[in-house]
Simulated scan of single mutants.
Amino acid sequence: MSHVLTLVAPPGGLPASLPGLARDALAALGADLGAPDWLAEAEAVDLPFSRLDPQQAVAAFRRAAGDAPVDAIAGPAEGRRKALLIADMDSTIVTSETLDELAAYAGLKEQVAEITRRSMNGELDFAAALRARVVMLKGLPLDALEATWRETHLMPGARALVRTMSAHGAHCALASGGFTFFTGRVAELCGFASHHSNTLLEENGALAGTVAEPIFDRDAKLATLTRLAAERGLPMSATLAVGDGANDLAMIGAAGLGVAYRAKPIVAAAARARVDHADLRALLYAQGYRAPEILADG
C-alpha cells in the first residue's frame, strides 16, 4: 500500500469500531485497503491504503467520524520516520506562552496576551508585535524570569517525542519566537540537541525592554529547518516540524511532515496535518512508532 492513514486518540479513547468506519469511508471513494495495524491498543491504529489522495482520506474520515475526538494524519508509507524534528516551544512543547506569563509579574498579562493572540493568528507582524510586548516589560526584575520558569510545564508527550526520536538517531531542535532563557531550559529538560530563539536584553539587574536583533521570526524558523537538514544531507521529506502559531506556518509547510498542534485557526486551516485531541506522542504514531518503542514521558 502506498499510503497510511493514522488515527490517534487520547489514551484509551479510540473505539475499536472506528477503524472499520474509516475503512468504509475510504472504500466508498475507491481506495484499496490493507488490514488495520494497531500501534497502541485503544489509542493509535494505521490504516494502509492506495489509489486515494492523503488529504481526501483525512477528509473522508472526518466526515464519517463527525465530532469524535480522534486525530487523523495521512501520508506516504515510505520514509515515515523522520531524521530531523523542528519544534516550536510556547503552546507546543510547553503548555503556556512564556512571554504572557512573564508579563503577569508586571501586571500586564492581559494586555500582552492579547497582542500574542493576534500575532499567533497572523493578524500582526510578528517582529513588531514582539518588540511591542518586550518594551512593556522594561525594568522588570530578572527574578521574574526564574519565577516564570518555575511555573512552566511541559506539554504531555513532549519528553516522549524528543527522547524517542533522539534514540532513533534524529536531531531534535527547538525553534522558538520566545527567549533563550526558556528554550535552553526546555531543551535540557526534554533532550533537544539544539535550541534557536530570541535573546532578551538586560541592564542593571532588570529587563532592558529590548530584544537582540535580528528577531528570530517565521523566516528564521524556516531557515533553521533548511539549514539543519542541509547540514545532515537530508531531503525535506525526512523532516518533521510542529507548531501552533502563524510564525510556524513556513516551517510546517516546508517539512516532510508538518503538524499544526492544537493550533490557532489560521494554522490549523493551512497545515496538511493537525493534532487537536491527542498528546505529542501522536507525532510518533504518525511516523509508525509502536507503543513499546516509545520512551517514557517522565
Rank of each mutant, 00 (worst) to 15 (best):
A229H: 02
A229Q: 03
A229E: 00
A230L: 10
E231H: 06
E231T: 13
E231I: 13
E231P: 08
E231A: 15
R232C: 05
R232V: 02
R232H: 07
R232I: 01
G233Q: 11
L234W: 00
L234V: 00
P235V: 09
S237D: 13
A238Q: 04
A238I: 01
A238Y: 00
T239F: 07
T239S: 13
L240C: 14
L240A: 05
L240Q: 03
A241T: 10
A241V: 11
D244F: 10
A246G: 04
N247S: 12
N247L: 13
L249T: 11
A250T: 08
A250L: 15
A250G: 00
M251E: 02
I252R: 09
I252H: 09
G253H: 11
G253C: 12
G253L: 13
A254L: 07
A254P: 03
A255E: 02
G256V: 06
L257E: 04
L257Y: 05
L257N: 07
G258L: 09
V259K: 05
V259N: 01
A260N: 00
Y261D: 06
Y261T: 03
Y261C: 12
R262E: 02
A263S: 08
K264I: 06
K264E: 03
P265W: 15
P265Q: 15
V267M: 06
V267T: 10
V267Q: 00
A268M: 05
A268S: 15
A268Q: 12
A268H: 12
A269Q: 12
A269V: 02
A269S: 06
R272M: 04
A273I: 02
A273W: 03
R274Y: 01
R274G: 01
D276C: 13
H277A: 14
H277G: 13
H277M: 11
H277C: 12
D279M: 14
D279V: 10
R281A: 09
